[in-house]
Design a binder for these strands. Structure first.
Lengths: 171, 171
DNA sequence: CCTCTATCCGGAGAACCTCTCCGCTTCGCT
DNA sequence: AGCGAAGCGGAGAGGTTCTCCGGATAGAGG
């Protein structure tokens, strides 16, 4: 990749992070391009879809989330570890005012977001296996995602995500 | 209200029901107006916001939901009644491809949707009181709403809503 | 039955949005 | 330094939401 292209790409990702954080699902890609100081054409060449751009923004966060999951694998209480990690997943899903949750809900096979999703699923499966319960990791993740989404809809209610997660059985 | 205005209003509501059912959150109010055979101005005068229009469409459904809740009050098992009703709530929230859930999540004090929400909350509170649990009805409803939303994001997965609801503790 | 006015209609248009196309610029290899 | 390929970004098509206001009309009152 040419040096100027790499520079632009990085600037777009940074602008996207700022705009997504501010506007969430209502964010405008036009605005991202403007803030990055590039034309719309440049943005869409680098990131054909909103999901591609989102993945570039959250990639590091996803890695950190999975690393945290691997750490928790070594702890003493499998169920507590799973619960802690699901809390982290919900927190991640509610990032950027729920944008992640809404996009994650519409993930399509083979997309860049699907790769992130698969990585998370694998981590969760390992944590779940240790508990010996018969639950489905895909369902648990969908529920955590939905709870993160709900938590972000009421920004004033700080503890909502935790309270809703407390209603979930893990056994 | 003049007769022609009432006629137009009714046609807009019917058109909205059709468009919402087909397109969900991606529905265009323009399309609603076109389908109803009126201009955009007419639509916005009758229903200043999307929520106003949505309320007109779902009002009967909300009443039915609350009536069902009152029926369930007379049953033998309080907890089972609450669970059954929450299932109905989730089903209602997922109507129109999740449009209801997304709007319900953004309900603001004093709006028309808030009235619907209050009616549902009152019904739920009665059902919850019988169980003697210390849970919060507002939280339970938010969770049911989120689960309905999640269920609608994966239209191919028929039983998802039920499976996620099964993960919720009511005691 | 006719007239008149308050009410209502609905198209034009402003200001956004997403996404594409393509002529021009610029990088960096030779 | 020259040149080919890569990349840029504005113009623009077609969509959206929402407003404004000149003209049509329902239906009450004479």
């Amino acid at each position: 990749m040419r040096a100027d292209a790499a520079r632009n790409r990085e600037q777009i990702v940074q602008a996207a992070r700022a705009v997504f954080t501010q506007d969430g699902p209502a964010a405008s890609l036009n605005q991202v391009a403007q803030r990055a100081g590039v034309g719309p054409g440049t943005l869409y060449r680098h990131f054909p879809t909103l999901q591609d751009l989102l993945v570039a923004v959250i990639k590091d966060d996803v890695s950190a989330l999975c690393a945290r999951g691997r750490e928790l694998l070594t702890g003493p209480s499998p169920e507590q570890a799973l619960r802690t990690w699901l809390r982290a997943v919900a927190g991640h899903a509610s990032a950027m005012r729920g944008l992640v949750a809404t996009q994650l809900a519409a993930v399509t096979e083979g997309s860049a977001l699907a790769a992130c999703h698969d990585e998370i699923t694998a981590t969760g499966a390992a944590l779940l296996a240790r508990t010996g319960s018969g639950l489905d990791i895909a369902d648990l993740l969908k529920l955590a995602n939905a709870i993160g989404w709900a938590g972000e809809q009421a920004p004033g209610d700080q503890g909502l995500t935790d309270r809703l997660l407390a209603l979930v059985t893990l056994s």
